[in-house]
């Protein structure tokens, strides 16, 4: 995973069939410092992008009603192309 500008973590949320999930909530649960407590909603293409202002490792989580939450741990310097797959409960 590379190609994102420094300080940006971006990716896509899909379901088990590979279809993009719209309106999934994506937010950090761990970060190298204090982080704004907001959540991004994915677009119709399942895509999201979150600012990662500090160098280091971030854990992001996504959730959508009817699915179990999915997690990924990403270094801020490798923040492009994060894939999160939601599995139905």
């Amino acid at each position: 995973m590379s190609g994102a500008p420094p300080g940006l973590i971006a990716g896509v949320v899909r379901d088990q069939s590979g279809a993009p999930v719209e309106d999934a909530r994506v937010y950090f649960t761990d970060a190298p410092g204090a982080i704004p407590d907001v959540a991004a909603l994915t677009g119709a293409d399942g895509c999201f992008s979150l600012a990662a202002p500090l160098d280091g490792t971030y854990t992001l989580e996504c959730g959508a009603d009817g699915f179990a939450a999915a997690r990924a741990t990403v270094a801020s310097r490798d923040g492009a192309g994060v894939e999160l797959t939601l599995r139905a409960r």
């Binding site: 950090f28 649960t29 190298p32 410092g33 204090a34 500090l54």
Partner: peptide
């Protein structure tokens, strides 16, 4: 060296 963030 900022601390890690964890909201829960």
């Amino acid at each position: 060296l900022p601390p890690q963030a964890e909201t829960v």
